[in-house]
Amino acid sequence: MKIAVASGKGGTGKTLVAANLASVLSKDVSTTLVDCDVEEPNLHLFFPSPVTTADVTVPMPVFDPEACNHCGKCAEFCRYGAISVLPNRILFFPELCHSCGGCMLVCPNGAIREEPVRIGIVTTSHPSNRLTLVTGILDEGQSHATPIIRAAKEMGGSSDLIVFDAAPGTTCSVVETVTDCDACILVTESTPFGLHDLSLAYEVMKLLNVPSGVVINRSDGEDAEVLAFCRSHGLSVLLTIPFDRGIAAVQNRGELISRKDRAWEEMFAELYARCRTLVGVHE
């Protein structure tokens, strides 16, 4: 089972949910936790452990000035504007290139070849017996997160239970993370911003055909608007976490509430059971 944790709005508690869920599940079953928030990964803070590192590269075109006759076909083909061809020069903008390889295919002179360029890394660690943590990290200054997410998801392999922590928002990064997942947990908070972005994230899950449910975090007990939204869209509320200084303190020390408190351990186990129900698996 593959479960994504997404939110729309940033700072709602995706990482809290993903970390506690994976930690609880890994007590009984081999679990992989994948940090797909590659621009700002932070799950490792909760699971300090030695890592092994692998580079992530993408192919980028290299131009042979001898073979190029400046016909401009590559620039014409590139829908991202990454190549400009002048009568006596070629300009290439790597930050605009999506590594599609099209320029190489349309070049009639064989003047373009591809070379791998590093854009980030994926680290793997084993914080406990049955828990594997995979973290995608985009290099500073790089703009394309999705190849790193793809690499991190591949590194996560095909273990029976994988939890993916998505980036905030509803961008390509989130789509890349959630695609092929069996269920998605949408973490929100009872604020107008939380609800607004929850509705956007919900639309994305609908388009991707991934069943989703909601976790309300930092609830002050007045969640009427979020609850009304969930009701009218057929979304179940999987878990409600109260606005509580004690929880924040545990989290801020890099610890997990499910390890500190047996009641939370049970609630995160129940969260998993509810995710299974979302997918249509009944105990």
Binding site: R79, G81, V85
Partner: peptide, 19 residues
């Protein structure tokens, strides 16, 4: 032709006026 393009419109428009 690039006024409503998704991205990379700057260099593409530049190429257009160079042409």
């Amino acid at each position: 032709p690039f006024a409503r393009g998704a991205g990379g419109v700057g260099p593409k428009a530049a190429q257009f006026i160079i042409n």
